[in-house]
């Protein structure tokens, strides 16, 4: 009993009046999210195995039937697209965790503390970036192992990787919103199935030339196509123009515009829903 009294005194004196600042609080929230990822075998092991499995399947199952595309081996076509499309797939977990945190009251607990409530969201985005970097790094290594090669410079390759992390910033807000709206893990998982039409109906895995008109119209006008092409163009270097019709800059600019637009819209919506309480 006396120990608690002692602590009470100390905390009262040393605690800052306003709670942790936004940056400290974001780091604390992010640390928790990353720890959850690392210590949950379903997330880290199953997620990684799934990623590798898909990549190998695409490379050897579909790649065999596909052949070359305008002189480009399928593995060099598919791996960059796969990595770009892997961004939304990886972040499905964000929607599920957000929904569960809301349901279990974890978010209420964080918001009832004097530190800024915004840290719940900024910390999540920070953690997403870390988790994404890990997943994409694994996918990249596996990509090289199954025969993918850079045609551009190493610098362009790194730029492609960085670009994927930027897409991640945009998609984080999309999945945060889905999680906040869904309010429970299963519903969030269900809503996240939207990832399938958006990734498969894009240039991520196959060229869109071969798609029927209606699907092609969709694929040509949605962000994942631009993101996949931007990453692909960066890895192709000088080959980008003959294969894709334009240089890397053309695709990167459009992919960035999409990313910023998605970020602004979904950031606004997520914050509005979050504040509603």
């Amino acid at each position: 009993m006396s120990t608690l009294k002692g602590t009470t005194m100390t905390t009262a004196v040393t605690a800052r009046d306003r709670g942790a600042g936004l940056s400290t609080a974001s780091l604390l929230v992010a640390k928790r999210a990353v720890l959850t990822f690392l210590r949950t075998p379903q997330l880290i092991i199953v997620g990684t195995v799934q990623l590798v499995g898909f990549l190998v399947t695409f490379r050897y199952v579909f790649g065999g039937a596909f052949g070359d595309y305008k002189g480009l081996a399928y593995v060099d076509f598919a791996v960059p697209g796969f990595i770009a499309a892997g961004v939304p797939f990886t972040l499905i977990g964000t929607a599920v965790v957000m929904a569960e945190d809301l349901h279990t009251g974890f978010i209420d607990r964080l918001r009832s503390l004097p530190s800024p409530s915004a840290a719940v969201l900024t910390g999540r985005v920070l953690a997403d970036t870390v988790v994404l970097a890990w997943s994409l790094a694994v996918a990249t290594l596996v990509g090289f192992a199954i025969g993918f090669r850079l045609h551009g410079s190493v610098l362009q390759g790194l730029a492609a990787f960085g670009l994927c992390l930027l897409f991640g910033l945009a998609f984080s807000w999309v999945f945060i919103l889905l999680g906040l709206v869904a309010r429970n893990g299963q519903a969030a998982q269900g809503l996240s199935l939207l990832v399938f039409p958006v990734t498969f109906g894009s240039s991520a895995y196959v060229p869109i030339d071969g798609m029927p008109g209606w699907l092609r119209a969709f694929a040509e006008n949605q962000p994942v196509t631009w993101m996949a092409n931007a990453v692909r163009a960066l890895t192709l270097g000088d080959k980008a123009v003959p294969v894709l019709g334009h240089g890397a800059g053309y695709f990167v600019v459009r992919a960035l515009i999409w990313s910023v637009a998605i970020m602004i819209v979904f950031f606004g919506l997520a914050v509005a829903v979050f504040r509603r309480g």
Partner: peptide, 16 residues
């Protein structure tokens, strides 16, 4: 985690 978010320093949070 809760102590740090409340604004306690690392050492205080450990003690509490």
């Amino acid at each position: 985690l809760v102590g740090r978010l409340y604004g306690q320093r690392a050492r205080t949070a450990k003690a509490s």
